[in-house]
Measured scan of single mutants.
Amino acid sequence: GAPPLPPYSAGGREVTMKKGDILTLLNSTNKDWWKVEVNDRQGFVPAAYVKKLDSGTGKELVLALYDYQEK
């Protein structure tokens, strides 16, 4: 199953993602919540729920390892 959710501390809205989604990583300075862009929406997802990909394009991409439903 998915890892436990860290307390929400990102101070911005969250976004929903599905397992297998490829998201653009915008900011990973917060260790628990990373800012991503998905379907032209920006928001935060739990860092433990995604994995960085080596895209080779200069853009940082992450793979959704679990479904996440915004609150």
Rank of each mutant, 00 (worst) to 15 (best):
S55V: 12
L65T: 03
K18Q: 08
E37N: 04
L25K: 01
T29D: 15
Y8M: 13
A47N: 02
L23F: 07
Y8K: 10
D21N: 06
D54N: 12
V36W: 00
K59Q: 14
Q42G: 07
G58H: 12
A48R: 12
G56V: 13
G56F: 11
K35S: 08
Q69W: 12
Q42H: 09
K31N: 12
Y8F: 13
V50M: 05
V15I: 14
V36L: 03
K52T: 08
V15W: 04
A48V: 11
G1I: 06
L5G: 04
L65I: 10
A64S: 05
S55E: 10
K71L: 13
K71W: 11
P6L: 01
P6M: 01
Y66V: 05
D67M: 03
G56P: 15
V36N: 00
L26D: 01
S28M: 09
E14M: 15
L26P: 00
L65M: 08
L53E: 04
L23M: 15
G20Q: 02
E70Y: 08
P46Y: 03
N39G: 15
Y49W: 07
G11I: 15
L61M: 11
N27L: 07
T29H: 11
Y49I: 04
Y8W: 12
P6A: 01
G58R: 08
M17E: 00
Y8T: 15
Y8E: 09
T29R: 09
N27V: 06
K19F: 04
N27K: 06
L26K: 04
P4R: 08
K19L: 05
K19S: 06
V36S: 00
E70K: 13
M17L: 07
N30E: 07
V45N: 00
Q42M: 10
A64M: 03
V15P: 02
T16H: 13
N39E: 15
K59C: 09
D32K: 05
W34H: 02
G12H: 08
Y68Q: 01
E14C: 11
A10Q: 08
L63E: 12
E37D: 07
K59V: 14
E70L: 11
W34N: 00
S55R: 08
K51Q: 13
V45L: 02
L26A: 03
V38A: 15
F44S: 03
K71P: 11
M17V: 09
K35C: 12
A48N: 13
V62P: 00
I22Y: 05
V45W: 00
A2E: 09
G11Y: 03
S55F: 11
T24V: 15
P46V: 02
A48E: 11
V38H: 15
L23W: 02
P3W: 05
P3S: 04
Y66M: 05
G20C: 04
Y66D: 03
T57P: 14
A64H: 01
V15K: 02
V45K: 00
K51N: 06
L23T: 01
A47L: 02
K31Q: 12
K51H: 09
K31M: 11
V45I: 08
